[in-house]
Design a protein around this nucleic acid. Structure first.
Length: 489
RNA sequence: GGGUCGUUAGCUCAGCCGGUUAGAGCACCUGACUUUUAAUCAGGGGGUCGCUGGUUCGAGUCCAGCACGACCCA
């Protein structure tokens, strides 16, 4: 490496070894978490000495040096504490060695805890041990790492230097923990189902393909959890969920990452109305416990997650937003009505028109949490038909700030109808729609043995994290988002 | 896929209408300093101006293409 900063530090490593100091020792003396030390001595008065020693270990984050004495900031995963190093306490030789430690290096320090006259809890170092050497400088101490590209490509540095980034991933972890707690309390059981699938089902999306050499068979990375979780439910685990990655071979944007984290849950003897209550409870709990309120700021907009949320049927929402009535499902008539409003609709069957009008007129206006209900059957091949409403299903999607957050149905449990729906999808596929779903005979075989009436739901946890952490991009809530390859020197 | 903007030291950023040897702060090195909080003071080193090509007497600066990223649109 020709970087002079790196070269200087590599020379320091040689110098340490020459003095008999291991720059990367295998064993670490016992230490306490920094937040524990701070908590224990929290009530020390300014300039008061505790008379008690503490041992801490962490990364050197800053140094303020004044000749024969220095203040050092040491940080571990729990917090930050100040170290006071003085030549008269450590001895000249040890003080010289601690002055050679670079910001970014790891240290173990033992000493008495006291509070400075400026009021900061501090360890008066009596001895220290070198724990690990850094050979590159950390990002700027005040501005941190701002460049968005560098923050995503070098997440370690982002986490070291940007507290907000760290806080976002702490929130994400709390969200996962609370989701599991709430579902476990309600009698749901967490399971794991295959990521590698012979038939990618449960959603309309393009899959990633891979190959199993020994089986000599193509396998797909799952696009949804649905069909395997339903097999488990049919098997009698009748409240079941999974939290895991799904994969869709599609575009990348501020709302889309090719691999993303889904929660899917299935509850027997329930329907989509129960799923609405469940997601209201779950999301309400998340905002209360993580943010402290169900009314939050998101990118300058005030969002109110206090249940109940607005419910509006899909065709009703389109009629309301565009003034175009779709209830007769007459494609030619709908296209004429749209034309009269100055809207040119593409050729295609009824669901395509619905999709187009929804994306154009409704979705961007769905800022507050809103349930869009009663989707056309053609685009809902796994949802139960709505009684008395020809062509519609018991389905909803939850939208917030124009993003789809959740998708739920009263699950189709009639195996004869399910087979017919798959066959309809197969015809679309034959007609060139490569997102259409495929017949899964093994899934049908399971359903033919009897499936209870069931409510099911999928929730996009990355997008939910965006809302919980006020993040503008999905890349801010995924530790290592998909990026184009860039060769670096 | 289209449009707009961006890419200068390890990091954060200036750099005017094309003109001398490309600047600052942090970080780093040297010196001073035993209660600092972005410590302070004095001095010093560090650059493939994203890449490739073009225009020009002369390009960080203008033009074209490419790469990566951000935002908007489809």
């Amino acid at each position: 490496m020709s970087d002079p900063l790196v070269r200087a530090r590599l020379e320091k490593i040689d110098a340490l070894r020459a003095e008999g100091v291991d720059p990367f020792p295998a064993r670490v003396p016992a230490s306490e978490r920094i937040d524990e030390v701070l908590r224990r001595h929290g009530n020390l008065a300014a300039e008061e000495h505790s008379g008690a020693r503490a041992a801490v270990a962490g990364r050197l984050m800053a140094r303020r040096q004044m000749g024969k004495a220095s203040f050092l900031d040491l940080r571990d995963g729990s917090g930050k504490i100040q170290i006071h190093a003085a030549a008269d306490r450590l001895g000249d030789a040890a003080y010289g060695r601690i002055c050679d430690v670079d910001v970014g290096d790891f240290l173990h320090v033992v000493g008495e805890v006291f509070r400075t006259k400026r009021g900061e809890l501090t360890v008066a170092a009596e001895s220290f041990t070198f724990l690990a050497k850094a050979i590159r400088p950390l990002p700027e101490k005040w501005h941190g790492l701002k460049d968005v590209e560098l923050r995503h490509r070098h997440r370690s540095l982002d986490l070291i230097s940007n507290d907000e980034s760290r806080a976002t991933f702490v929130r994400r972890a709390r969200m996962l923990s609370i989701v599991r707690r709430v579902l476990d309390e309600r009698g749901f059981m967490e399971v794991e189902t295959p990521i590698l699938q012979p038939i990618p089902g449960g959603a309309s999306a393009r899959p990633f393909v891979t190959h199993h050499n020994v089986l000599d068979a193509d396998l797909y990375l799952r696009i949804a959890l649905e069909l395997y979780l339903k097999r488990v439910l049919i098997g009698g685990i009748d409240r079941v969920y999974e939290i895991s990655k799904c994969f869709r071979n599609e575009g990348i944007s501020t709302e889309h990452n090719p691999e993303f984290t889904m929660l899917e849950l299935y509850q027997a003897y329930a329907d989509y109305g129960d799923m609405m209550s469940l997601v209201e409870d779950l999301v309400g709990t998340l905002f209360r416990e993580i943010v402290g309120s169900t009314v939050v700021d998101y990118q300058g907009k005030q969002l109110d997650f206090t249940p109940p949320w607005r419910r509006v049927s899909m065709l009703g929402a389109i009629a309301e937003a565009s003034g175009i009535d779709l209830s007769d499902r007459d494609v030619a008539a709908i296209r004429r009505r749209a034309k009269a409003k100055g809207v040119d609709l593409p050729e295609g069957p009824f669901p395509k028109l619905v999709d187009e009008l929804f994306d154009r007129f409704v979705e961007p206006g769905l800022v507050q949490p809103t349930f869009i209900t009663d989707y056309p059957v053609e685009i809902s091949p796994l949802a139960k038909s709505k009684a008395g409403e020809e062509g519609l299903t018991e389905r909803f999607e939850l939208f917030v700030v124009g993003m789809e957050i959740a998708n739920a149905f009263s699950e189709l449990n009639d195996p004869v109808d399910q087979r017919k729906r798959f066959e309809d999808q197969e015809r679309l596929r034959a007609g060139g729609d490569d997102e259409a779903q495929r017949i899964d005979e093994d899934f049908l075989f399971a359903m033919e043995h009897g499936m209870p009436p069931t409510g099911g739901m999928g929730v996009g946890l990355d997008r939910l994290t965006m809302l919980l952490s006020n993040s503008a991009s999905i890349r801010d809530v995924i530790l290592f988002p998909a990026l184009r390859r860039k060769d670096e020197a």
